[in-house]
Amino acid sequence: MKIALQINEGPYQHQAADSAIQFTKAALAKGHEIFRVFFYHDGVNNATRLAIPPQDDRNITAEWVALQKEHNLDLVVCIAAAQRRGLIDEDEMNRQGKDANNISEGFRISGLGQLIEAGIEADRLVVFGA
């Protein structure tokens, strides 16, 4: 089955961010295709490469990056939600004249149309959080 995910909550604050990773791993292990993972609301914070969780804790962003590399996942961060919350990539940093960027490798920034397209193309859209 072709599955898309929408993640609405940030890492560590809310179980949804962890559940989404565990769901993704389980779905891939069962042979399903992950069409896209769309990060929305505070979910965009899952994409920061600057978080420093305690060493004896899980690193949620790093887990996504590892999954992305292994399975070539399409991890999309909503640009409108990201800009509001200070999540930007290098292109956006230059365009907006900011002095830093923080989006991790493995994620890309795009628009809400990517979420709608995921709903259209996937057999199931599974929403985590909110």
Binding site: H41, L112, L115, I116, A130
Partner: peptide, 24 residues
């Protein structure tokens, strides 16, 4: 969710407006 207190309602509306372009 209520309209204020959290951003869910506003950001939901943003999805609805963008999604309207997709003829669903």
């Amino acid at each position: 969710k209520p309209p204020y207190g959290t951003i869910y309602a506003l950001e939901s509306l943003e999805v609805v407006l963008i999604g309207a372009a997709f003829d669903q």
